[in-house]
Write a protein that binds this DNA or RNA. Structure first.
Lengths: 350, 350
DNA sequence: AGGGCATGTGTCATCGTTGACACATCAAAT
DNA sequence: ATTTGATGTGTCAACGATGACACATGCCCT
């Protein structure tokens, strides 16, 4: 039979004490006699009492809920990893997480932020933020914001060192003897820039590629650098771009012996195109991805730059708690990405 | 400067009216003069007023939040799809979604349900429920529960017709001339059974496989049926089982010409093993998956049985709303899964 | 004996929104 | 001139938990 959850008052009545006493027992603070504690515990058990966090939040002005604004959880498993990491850290600390996907629509993002404000979440994490004005709304409402991956405003930001990660990938390929290494990535101009550093995630990865090959005395071939919007909410991250770029690359008179794709979804498209063309990986062509999302599922297992999603989520959450509790939190936390070597890379044969 | 969000009272004061008038303007109900409306709207804009849904929820006993209990969002993209579908439907109807992953721990599931009760969510959707007692807790608290995929209790359930979906996969393979078709799936005994029908998802898929080949006059070969726990939270859904099963299958004196894996993650492992063994798909072996999650990313594009995740989430949400609003909702909604043919299946050559 | 302190418990205003209720005013109808 | 109804607005008690405050004891110390 559908009933209602008991209130503090009902528990108090059943235990024969006041609500204050019940509250003290439950909070474990103040002085309580053993008999009172027992009566209260019995009443709590009998009524299956669950505190009403809505009422508590109204009174204490703390919801113990944080908002997590994501680009689109269905588009890239990277977001799933971050969401899960945030959830783990949050639950451990007694917080709840509310997820909202803006789907690359600034309007939707704004509505999500309004919803977060209406709920009086204690803080909002963005991964990744689209519009600085949404963060400004939170600022006005007195709700701290934390950015993950991209720093659009001067809110604290937790990000990954994409340059070092991408450089490790290039160094790995060069170390295997590759001299013709293609770069398949998103458009650094289209992909939103970091407001503070004036660089996008793609800028960093492309710079690392350029510096990497140059450092090993390899001359950059413009025909091996393929840029484009590599995933979007509409395409659902199909890797189509990766396929097209690879077909073009392999049709060159001097095709690359290795391909560095800046996202596992793109790399999956690369592998598909190579498979369709009958090329073996890594025997004919080596492939490296970025993110470590699909990597274990692909054939062959993809060598990729692993993003520390777990740490990303955890650090972002901890920064949020620091901001909530008024302590000073670092403006920027930079984590490192590391190369995971699997079966898609091997010695250059040409 | 971090300030606080304005309250109704502050808006009312600024507009020179009572809170009731502001409320009426915002709700658009009752009689309001044009002048009052204008003053209120101006005050709302000036203060960036956002209603406090916490306070509203306390008063109205409705949170407009629904809980979504998932197995583990990181383990299978299927859950991501369901979560997204639920979110879309919920937001459209003015609801928020709170996600919680139990990670196949009944204890964690119980804590999640307690958290949902504490928050006074309006309903909880399970995908998939682990322990009937968690649902019983909700029942006691007067919160409706809806189950997705698995029917553990007599709560309304929205599920997919796995039998028909799997049967389509088998019929497709037989139609291509395959006579030696392997079945790679989870353990029907270990994988939790539906309380009402006494069958697990795997039971249905296996039955469809058996009926399917028998219907075409093919004798079942026990050595082609490989069962085991194919993913778990710990393994992170690595597809390892799929690889191992495939290696064993291809080592048979009479290896199959087609493999039907009951999950895309498993199928990815199958493709990896075939790739490592130098077999071409579909030239040497055809492969069919289930779920349509990783399918587009794999090489070659995987023919798979697509789960109607979007409809699953939408229908579950609508059932929840029906339950919240007291209307009678159907006890069971069965949706159909359909085969999506890509590049991993082709004519049998043996 | 009386002050001081530890221990134990109850009362009540408060958080922000809602909606029932009361009370206006004014035009039209009797 | 009064009634009726439409229109417009304000007051206030909920919702449930919290914690400041007040008020009890009983014990120890001077």
């Amino acid at each position: 039979m559908a009933s209602k959850t008991a209130t503090l008052m009902e528990v108090a009545r059943l235990a024969g004490v006041s609500t204050a006493t019940v509250n003290r027992v439950l909070k474990g603070q103040g002085y309580i006699s053993e008999t009172a504690r027992e009566k209260v515990m019995a009443a709590v058990a009998a009524t299956h009492y669950q505190p009403n966090v809505v009422a508590r939040g109204l009174r204490t002005q703390r919801s113990y809920t944080i908002g997590l604004m994501l680009t689109a959880i269905t588009v890239n498993p990277f977001f799933v990893g971050v969401a899960h990491a945030v959830e783990i850290a949050a639950i451990k600390a007694g917080y709840r997480v509310m997820i909202f996907n803006h789907g690359e629509s600034a309007d939707t993002e704004r509505r999500g932020v309004e919803s977060f404000i209406a709920q009086r979440v204690d803080a909002v994490l963005f991964c990744t933020a689209l519009d600085a004005s949404s963060i400004a709304m939170l600022e006005r409402a007195g709700i701290p914001a934390i950015e993950i991956e991209r720093s659009l405003t001067d809110a604290p930001c937790v990000r990954v060192d994409n340059y070092v990660g991408a450089r490790a990938a290039v160094d790995h390929l060069v170390g295997l003897g590759h001299r013709s290494i293609a770069f398949v990535g998103g458009d650094p101009a289209l992909y939103a820039r970091d407001a503070r550093r004036q660089k996008s995630v793609e800028d960093d990865r492309l710079s690392a590629y350029r510096d990497g090959i140059r450092a090993h005395g390899i001359k950059e071939r413009p025909d091996l650098v393929r840029l484009g919007v590599y995933y979007s909410v509409e395409s659902g991250g199909s890797g189509e771009e990766g396929r097209l770029h690879t077909e073009a690359l392999m049709a060159l008179s001097e095709p690359p012996t290795a391909i560095f794709a800046t996202c596992d979804i793109l790399a999956a498209g690369v592998l598909q195109a190579l498979y369709a063309a009958g090329r073996r990986v890594p025997d004919d062509v080596s492939v490296v991805g970025f993110d470590d999302t699909l990597a274990t599922h692909l054939a062959p297992g993809l060598t990729t730059v692993a993003q520390p999603v777990e740490a990303l989520g955890r650090e972002a959450f901890h920064s949020a708690v620091a901001a909530i509790e008024g302590g000073e939190s670092p403006t920027e936390i930079v984590l490192s990405a590391s190369l995971v070597i699997r079966q898609s890379t091997g010695k250059a044969t040409r």
